[in-house]
Amino acid sequence: MRFSPKLVSWREWTGLGAGIVAVAALFLPWTNLSATRQDVEEALRELPAGDVARNAWTTGFLEWFGPVLLLLAGIAVVLVGQYRTARVGGLPQLWLIASAVAVLLMIFGWFAIDHEFSPDTRSLLADGGIGIYGGIGRYLGLAAGGVSLTAAVLDARSLRRRGMRKARY
């Protein structure tokens, strides 16, 4: 059987799109440094942009693996989801688990945001009044994870409802 875009449901396309958006967000600022004092903020502006706003590739495994997992799950669902045996065999549930793991990894990464820096650097930043905050990429990646997780839940539920209808007749 050949690939046919007509056989891909809107939920599966949504999962692939969410994975693409999540991976694109990896290249946006993932972590930002910001100061409350004006003189420190001006000093931050003089630093190279990569030191003040970091993308996910430079921050660590918890930051980049979740979005990459979303993309891989989206690709698998679109390509393999056309086969009825794969769909009945648990592909929607696998997508659901992959999306949930990806979202959890991104949430854990958010809680560990200050651990991107060494303890000495963290204390130096805190003494200077510099805070470590999530960037736009982190928000966009987590939103894409939520969209993929929602689509995966809806897809798993639709498969369950279809299976229940067939069992009744």
Rank of each mutant, 00 (worst) to 15 (best):
S34C: 02
E42M: 11
F117I: 05
P29L: 10
W110Q: 11
L62H: 03
T36D: 15
E63N: 14
D39T: 15
V78M: 07
M106I: 01
A56N: 01
S99W: 00
L71Q: 08
E63I: 00
A156N: 10
Y133T: 10
N55G: 07
N32E: 14
G17M: 10
G17S: 07
F111G: 13
F65T: 15
L94P: 00
A152G: 11
A102P: 10
E46Q: 13
S123K: 11
E42K: 13
E46V: 10
L33Q: 10
A156S: 14
L69Y: 02
A25H: 06
S9C: 07
Y169V: 14
R45L: 12
E12Y: 01
R54E: 08
P92L: 05
G15T: 02
H115N: 13
A76M: 12
L105Y: 02
E42P: 01
A167T: 09
A35M: 07
L142W: 07
T150C: 05
I107Y: 08
L104A: 15
W30I: 00
G74D: 02
R45Y: 02
A143Q: 07
A102V: 01
S99G: 14
E116I: 13
R87H: 04
T85G: 04
G90P: 09
V8A: 05
G50M: 12
R45P: 00
L33Y: 09
G17Y: 04
Y133G: 12
W57I: 06
V88Q: 08
E12D: 09
M106A: 11
V101Y: 04
I107C: 03
L154D: 05
V80H: 02
G50P: 00
V52T: 13
L104C: 11
V80I: 11
R162K: 10
D155S: 13
V103P: 03
L16V: 03
S34V: 15
A24Y: 04
S9Y: 10
W10Y: 13
G109N: 07
G141K: 09
A152V: 10
G15N: 10
L140Y: 03
L71T: 06
Y139C: 07
F111D: 04
I97N: 01
L16C: 06
W10T: 11
I75E: 06
L91P: 03
L47N: 04
L142E: 05
G66M: 01
Y139M: 10
K166M: 13
R157C: 05
A112D: 12
W64N: 04
F117V: 08
L70C: 04
G146D: 05
F3D: 07
R45D: 14
L26Y: 01
T121M: 13
D39K: 12
A18V: 02
G163K: 12
A100V: 12
L154W: 06
G135Q: 06
L149V: 07
E63P: 00
W110T: 13
A126T: 12
A151D: 04
S34Y: 05
T85R: 14
A56W: 04
Y169W: 09
D120A: 14
G19Q: 08
Y83R: 15
L159Y: 09
L140E: 01
S148R: 02
F108C: 07
I20R: 04
L142S: 12
I75N: 03
A76I: 03
V103W: 01
L62V: 00
